[in-house]
Amino acid sequence: MNKFVMSIISLLLVFSMLTPFQQVEASESKSYERIAGDNRIQTAIEISKEGWPKGVGHNQFGTKVVILARADVPADALAAASLVGKKDAPILLTYSDKLPEETLKEIERLKPEHIYILGGEKAISESIDKKLDDKGFIPIRIAGDDRFQTANWINIFSGGHLDSTDTAIIANGETIVDALSASSFSALNNIPIFLAKKR
């Protein structure tokens, strides 16, 4: 399975827990593989292991990247779908004020050069930048004053704002459902997702 799709599936699995949905019973003739952890942080790790079993490789820009997003508020992670596609990077999750040991262990296994940290210091504490720097990684923070500006900066880093098709996805930034639905299309086609308010 395409790594980009695998990373977006991680978003769907992790953040579907936050959104009510109608459960559909699968036919007995259908087969599927469940990739799961005990919580959303561990689920993201398990999917990273599935999609990047040998660690992250050099992408088209010659860099090895991991994306780190806040676990409890999904807006930044969802806006990063095109960044996933451009950078061939898994998304891992963290607490706002503390990097989980299991997430750090997975980062060390993946062996990235750069770690894109999504959101400002209220979203993810500066202490996490320092911890990653102390471990020999290069943390690069992508942030604006709010989720809407952060989404804009994410798209600048992904190069999606320069896409020759002049195509973009506009999603409601006050709820996750629309951005979630568009995330796989965004990643596979390198189309940026911009977040907007209802009015």
Rank of each mutant, 00 (worst) to 15 (best):
12 L>Y: 13
12 L>V: 01
13 L>I: 02
14 V>L: 02
14 V>W: 00
15 F>I: 01
15 F>L: 00
16 S>L: 05
16 S>Q: 14
16 S>A: 05
17 M>E: 14
18 L>V: 01
18 L>M: 09
18 L>H: 07
19 T>G: 01
19 T>V: 03
19 T>H: 04
20 P>V: 03
20 P>H: 05
21 F>R: 15
21 F>A: 15
21 F>G: 15
22 Q>L: 01
24 V>P: 03
24 V>L: 02
24 V>T: 04
24 V>S: 03
25 E>G: 02
25 E>A: 00
26 A>V: 12
26 A>P: 12
27 S>P: 12
27 S>W: 12
28 E>Y: 01
30 K>H: 10
31 S>Q: 11
32 Y>T: 00
32 Y>Q: 04
34 R>G: 10
35 I>R: 05
36 A>I: 15
38 D>N: 03
38 D>S: 06
38 D>Q: 04
39 N>P: 12
39 N>E: 03
40 R>Y: 05
41 I>E: 09
42 Q>L: 06
43 T>R: 07
43 T>Y: 12
44 A>K: 07
45 I>K: 07
46 E>Y: 06
46 E>I: 01
47 I>M: 12
48 S>H: 08
48 S>F: 04
49 K>Q: 15
49 K>C: 09
49 K>W: 14
50 E>T: 05
50 E>H: 11
51 G>D: 04
52 W>R: 00
52 W>H: 04
53 P>C: 01
54 K>W: 07
54 K>R: 10
54 K>N: 13
56 V>D: 11
56 V>E: 11
56 V>A: 08
57 G>H: 08
58 H>T: 10
59 N>D: 15
60 Q>A: 03
60 Q>H: 09
60 Q>L: 05
61 F>H: 04
61 F>T: 02
61 F>E: 05
63 T>N: 12
64 K>T: 08
64 K>Y: 11
64 K>N: 07
64 K>I: 01
64 K>V: 06
65 V>A: 03
66 V>F: 14
66 V>Y: 13
66 V>K: 06
67 I>F: 15
68 L>K: 07
68 L>D: 13
68 L>A: 07
68 L>F: 11
69 A>R: 07
69 A>V: 06
69 A>D: 09
69 A>Q: 10
70 R>Y: 15
70 R>D: 15
73 V>Q: 06
74 P>C: 01
75 A>Y: 11
75 A>P: 13
75 A>M: 11
77 A>N: 02
77 A>W: 08
78 L>F: 10
78 L>P: 14
79 A>N: 12
79 A>S: 15
79 A>L: 10
80 A>L: 05
80 A>D: 06
82 S>W: 11
82 S>L: 02
82 S>A: 11
82 S>N: 13
82 S>H: 09
84 V>F: 12
85 G>S: 06
86 K>N: 00
87 K>H: 08
89 A>H: 04
89 A>D: 03
89 A>P: 12
90 P>W: 06
90 P>R: 02
